[in-house]
Design a protein around this nucleic acid. Structure first.
Lengths: 353, 353
DNA sequence: ATCAGATGCTAAATCGTTTTTGCAGATCAA
DNA sequence: TTGATCTGCAAAAACGATTTAGCATCTGAT
């Protein structure tokens, strides 16, 4: 009938072509109607209806890539936050705000301040299955969070063809932002300065690069200063419930402690409850030190002393690093160590901050 | 020289064309080199170097839209989470997980299970400035969170040309997910069942649609059952600090209360501290009810009783609704009310859950 | 009957990229 | 010297959309 071009088979997703074929018009008319330009473009009302019906019938969804390409908007720089499903991302807004701030501050002027942020999530250990990761089809640069050992091995095998910043992970050939390595030892020092001698550390299992560094630093410095090893309390995960369960079991087993280091504030909060239930007072019986990864740790009861890097600092540094690499200053892949913030609060016997 | 085509001016961002012109080769060769296909494509080593140098010199960044368009991957459905900078997004992972689950469950088969998620943030009240919002250039569908009254007015004026789901907001012509309206009244009932008679509610300022509904429901039901109005404690924001400050000032002013409703768990936590500092015990002196928007509220001391909708339920319902609209079942723009979850814990005198 | 202006649509150009095809020149074997 | 094979690259097609230019046909006025 009215076919004007060698019509393609309508396989796959509906496109303007498919609609045009179905309605017996040209793709130009289809586009005009779908963007509500049919008045200026003088499309007849009944044609408009035909096209709308065809689009609805085919379940048309525009191809965003084609739209963006064509309409050539300038904010075509796409940054990605890549994290695993299993890990929470309380950091997301920190990152977006930090990226935006870094852009506004004129790092990476090419983007003209405009960029898009995608979130890509993958099942732990399956980073390699993430579409577009290897081809670079989905984003111009990425911040990688919460990778597992398998993911790290994959990254090590196959370098990604765009700028990447790892957070709390070190892999050769990649830029990274990590917390200062003396977190654990500083925690030990805080407790020891507070006259604690029988120390314990509570951590998750398995240990990550970061939590292992914290535990090791703590154990090492504690043994060094006290000549005696600290107890190790092993929780299943880094959650409150896991911390509570592990701490409860530990206390029931009998060892007496007067100082506790938690490698996450979630564990600290869980331990709080176990300690209180066991009749122990914080800090008079047991002083507690966390890492400050919960924004509400000042409102724990008692407020939690912590030493660690703030999510905000981490996010700012990672953003800076990412844009710097995008700016393309050669092949610099620096590792940036974010300095520690020590916040002394009541949980270690200090005056509430 | 070796110019083969009427070379375009190199204005704007560098493209393969620009690199080709700079290196004196064709764009095909440029593309081959940039994608590390130069071996199979038999590009001479010195040409490879020339192209790499030109690309680096021009600060080349590929246009992601063009890449995706060309390489035609099937996951071209783009969903957006749109929220304001000011509001936290602890919900992000809930939404992504829920969207993924809904996709996997076979809602919206067109996408073949693959889709991308973008996060778009805007300054409160400036939703209308978000690039791509009106044209639909950036995503196929969106979930809108944390809009202000101005933003809502804008949405009301200019209907968006793609499926949208509003969260905790009602605007004519848009699908929405809201919490059940009886949150506030249920909170009042919990406190009154716990034999509390002198009630107060603590809330932020300005009130949002949702928090206003909570406050109104609470006040109304409280007055109805007790024949006496509840006190209103007004905090600046929905933060712990604001809650603490407001509650402290209120207690200092003298009114005695025995039941408190907090329209956010953050306010509840801030109020906890003010109450304790004032020598009041929870729940014996003052029972507290929150809304359950903090995952760690079971680990408050004492654990917080709450009535509200979980972020997870909200996210699941919003995702379902979004995909349903994408599936395009006509122009259905339903408003879905998410049922309440009531969790009785120690803060209202119940046994810890 | 003729021309001007509407009206309604098609065709083509374009966005930036990748891949396929093809062509010229060099190298090699006989 | 003549094919055959290899090298190195250019040209063109394609992805899916939007916009512009242009071509018929119709309407109404003269």
């Amino acid at each position: 009938m009215g076919k004007t071009k060698p019509t393609k088979k309508p396989r796959g997703r509906a496109t303007v072509r498919g609609i045009a074929a179905a309605a017996g018009v040209s793709i130009g008319s289809v586009s005009s109607v779908l963007n509500n330009r049919h008045v200026e473009r003088r499309i007849a009302p009944e044609t408009v209806e035909k096209i709308r019906a065809a689009a609805a019938g085919l379940g048309y969804l525009p191809n965003i890539s084609a739209k963006r390409l064509r309409s050539g908007g300038k904010n075509n720089v796409v940054l990605a936050l890549v994290t695993s499903f299993e890990a929470p991302i309380p950091l997301v807004n920190h990152f977006i705000i930090a990226l935006r701030a870094a852009m506004a501050a004129g790092k990476f002027p090419q983007a003209e301040g405009a960029f898009s942020v995608m979130i890509e999530m993958f099942p732990a250990g399956r980073l390699h299955e993430l579409p577009g990761l290897l081809t670079g089809d989905h984003f111009n640069a990425a911040i990688l969070l919460n990778t597992t050992a398998e993911d790290d091995a994959f990254l090590n095998r196959s370098p990604l063809p765009y700028p990447v910043v790892l957070v709390n992970r070190l892999i050769a050939g990649y830029a990274a932002v990590v917390e200062a390595p003396e977190t654990g030892s500083r925690a030990a020092e805080i407790l020891i300065r507070a006259k604690r001698r029988r120390l314990a550390v509570i951590h998750g299992s398995p240990l990550t690069q970061t939590t292992r560094a914290r535990v090791n630093g703590f154990m090492h410095r504690g043994a060094e200063l006290l000549g005696r090893p600290a107890h190790e309390v092993m929780a299943g995960k880094l959650s409150e419930t896991a911390g509570y369960d592990a701490m409860r079991a530990f206390l029931k087993r009998g060892p007496e402690i007067d100082g506790l280091y938690a490698v996450s504030d979630a564990l600290a909060l869980g331990a709080y409850r176990a300690l209180k239930e066991h009749g122990l007072k914080i800090p008079s019986d047991v002083a507690v030190v966390g890492v400050g990864d919960y924004e509400i740790s000042p409102f724990f009861d008692p407020p939690l002393t912590s030493v660690g890097v703030s999510h905000q600092a981490l996010a700012e540094e990672a953003s800076r690093l990412l844009l710097q690499q995008l700016g393309g200053v050669g092949a610099a892949r620096p590792t940036v160590t974010v300095p520690l913030t020590e916040t002394l609060r009541a949980s270690s016997g200090h005056r509430a901050g």
